[in-house]
Amino acid sequence: MSVVVEGLTKTYGRRHALDGLSFTAGTGVTGLLGPNGAGKTTLIRLLATVLAPDRGTMRLLGRDPATERQAIRRRLGYVPQEPGYHRGFTVFEFVDYVAILKEMADRRTRHDEVRRVIDEVGLADVSGRRIRALSGGMRRRIGIAQALLGDPELVLLDEPTAGLDSEQRLRFRDLIARAGEGRTVILSTHQIEDVAALCAKVVVLKDGGSVFEGTPKELRGLAEGRTWVGGRKEGPLCRHTGEGVFRTLGDPPPGARPAEPTVEDGYLLLLHEAAPAATR
């Protein structure tokens, strides 16, 4: 396992951003799901060695970030939630700048590597353009490009698909799937479809703890036999569908018939029923 996290706690003032979180992740794409404020970004920043935990242990790529931070950083790629860009830089200049921060000193080999990652995310055409002239989708791809510099073993992506239209999202999935070949990718997202399409493993966060760890199929399985359509609107887990009928999770309302669950059904049911993490 390239990521092993145990009992991770991080507090800001009196607020517990993470509260005794444990999970593991190996090769492939692992999705982090959870409502806003569940602690996803805090977790990603801890994994990126940007923050240090108050309590708990982490082993990243077999090393302890408290003592071997540099060694981990050399094998790490990180796309923050809102990556900033020097808007006056060209795509190449920006990625080159990050490459310098990644200790690639020799100019020629560095430039070759920059060209490689820019090509990999499909931005070769525009590598000479200023970032301010690019669309949001292209800027997101710059974020991925810089994370792939130096062929890292662990890649952390904090909501890389936020704000993209559906076509851009599909292309992004491709990109992430390719990035997940042979390395560990941790993907924090709100898009349950992304998780269903990409991830070998899902971790669901709630109130700073993990309430589920398994495959997307297992997450969907939670709603197996507990998903219903038709009937009256009843209970908190009942919502409109496009066809003018209600979709209910949990106990069947009168007159409803069973339906095939989705990963989203499993996720919603889980969030509703999971006890607030840990007992405080």
């Binding site: 923050p80 990556p83 900033g84 020097h86 921060l101 990644k102 200790e103």
Partner: peptide, 18 residues
Amino acid sequence: ADPAYEIGLAAPYPAVKV
């Protein structure tokens, strides 16, 4: 001031040195 600040924090080049 530095748009790539957060990325830089996770990079091996020490931010203090910059």
